[in-house]
């Protein structure tokens, strides 16, 4: 009984140390645990896999540095897949603090593939007022983004020559840690019938499964796991895949402590046991 009581009042810092070890050690001793592919991720992959050089997608980086570890790997994986398929990629952001991240992601992958700004992809940057901006893009993207991020007039960008509104866009992918993704759904999907897919943080993912079930979105990437699944599908493992072992081991530690806490609670019968915070 004393042992259980001791476990129940364990210093939270010990738990933090164990979690830290569970995260750090797998990077040095990778186990390569399997990454099963879920339907919602595979459906985005299949959709982009069917696209070709005459098709175009919009990648809207609607997140800021707070959610970078989860969303940035998703964006890179999707851009890699699009470049593999030679699909035209239009990158933009609806968040003012997301400009740097969006530019970094597309430039990094473009350099890797030897893709040229303006010819194979373009970076439109940021424009304020996302609701009306999305509605405006449905009518004419050129009026909403008269120039790209670097100041080049849109009409002078070859990759945008045949792209005027959502009729010329095959898929919009929004990556966000906020409800901006729903704005894409309400403004672009409901108003213009634009196909939408999104990548969201793990915190948000459960709330957005309803849009998958209703068939309103093509697919969804949820958290680091979603990014790792996509990296697995395109066979280009990167940071998300590298983090999956750590994620699994940290989850094991947390599950063990939840079990210990509950078993201890029932054994000791101390219903008003105060947590050690």
């Amino acid at each position: 009984m004393k042992f259980i009581e001791k476990l129940m009042s364990i210093d939270r810092r010990i738990i933090y140390i164990l979690i830290a070890l569970a995260i750090i050690i797998p990077f040095f001793v990778p186990m390569g645990l399997p990454i099963p592919i879920t339907k919602e991720v595979e459906s985005i992959y299949n959709y982009i896999e069917d696209l070709g050089p005459n098709d175009a997608i919009i990648i809207s980086n609607d997140y800021d540095p707070q959610t970078k570890p989860e969303l940035y790997p998703m964006v890179k994986a999707i851009i890699r897949h699009a470049f593999d398929r030679e699909v035209k990629v239009i990158v933009m952001t609806l968040i003012v603090t997301g400009v740097g991240l969006a530019e970094e992601a597309v430039k990094e992958v473009a350099d890797e593939y030897g893709m040229v700004n303006g010819k194979d992809y373009c970076f439109l940057g940021y424009r304020p007022g996302w609701g009306l901006l999305i509605l405006g893009m449905g009518v004419d993207i050129h009026t909403q983004f008269p120039t790209d991020y670097y100041g080049t007039p849109i009409k002078d960008i070859p990759v945008m020559a045949d792209i005027h509104n959502f009729d010329d866009i095959d898929l919009v992918l929004s990556f966000s840690g906020s409800s901006i993704v729903v704005s894409w759904l309400t403004m672009a999907k409901e108003r213009f019938g634009q196909n939408i897919a999104w990548g969201v943080t793990g915190v948000m993912a459960p709330d957005y499964y309803i849009y998958l079930q209703s068939g309103q979105i093509v697919g969804m990437l949820g958290g680091l796991k979603g990014a790792a699944e996509y990296e697995t599908l395109i066979n280009k493992p990167d940071t998300a895949t590298a983090g999956m072992d750590a994620q699994s081991w940290a989850h094991v530690i947390i599950i063990v402590f939840i079990l210990i806490g509950n078993i201890g609670f029932f054994i000791t019968g101390k219903k008003n046991l105060k947590p050690n915070i």
């Binding site: 830290a20 570890p69 793990g202």
Partner: peptide, 22 residues
């Protein structure tokens, strides 16, 4: 389900920082 996903998300942020340092 939301709590489980939240735990996953918070750990992902820690993993991101550890990866950055390493």
């Amino acid at each position: 389900a939301t709590f489980g996903y939240t735990v996953m998300a918070r750990l992902s942020l820690a993993i991101g920082r550890v990866l950055f340092i390493l």
